[in-house]
Amino acid sequence: MTDYLAQTAVLLGSLWPKLVDGFLITVAIAAAAAPLALVFGLVLLAPRMDARAFISGPTVAFIELMRNTPLLVQIYLIYFGLPVLGLYPSEFACGVAGIALQHGAFLVETYRGAIESVGARQWDAARAIGMGRFTAFRTVIMPQALIKILGPLGNQLIVLAKDTSLVSAIGVMELTMTGKLAIERSAASAEVFVTIALFYLAMTTAIGGAMRLIEYRVAGRS
């Protein structure tokens, strides 16, 4: 037993620097994709909620396509497809783009749900004291919607962080890919992946904790 532990410790010790590097790449992918997804969701929000069918129709179609097909296939499409058009972005860029597009599409629905859930009565209250539509939106609806978004947003960010593992499929040296390569060179495969799992767990727990903290402080102030 102690033999086993000692061997595992040695193995993990030698792998550690590579694992940390992989983890940093994972964090980099998430850090790049998350803001892009948030913005992309906002960009889609107006067309999505537009009353004119020829604008909201294609937007909805795009969103539904993104939500009902696997992210992996979307990433493959970008990675294998762009070269056909003469573009050769890096694997990293393809991965970030794929993740941002899919999560942006999911976020539009989150934004829309939060705004619609603030409800007619709040609009009534704002207009009743004489506010114009834009002021009402800015000072009454949006702050409340922002608070409602925090919960689902936190969950979405955690999913995003986990989805970074998919870019291992196109060769990016993030955490999961590092694990795959490490295994090909040694026998302790299960142990390596358990360690990798722990890395991800640490990351998602940190994100979850940070989001709860933010929710708490925002809710406290209002």
Binding site: I158, K162, A197, T205
Partner: peptide, 10 residues
């Protein structure tokens, strides 16, 4: 808290 891909590898 862990990606499904990692669970699959496990």
């Amino acid at each position: 808290g862990i990606p499904v891909l990692v669970v699959m590898f496990l």
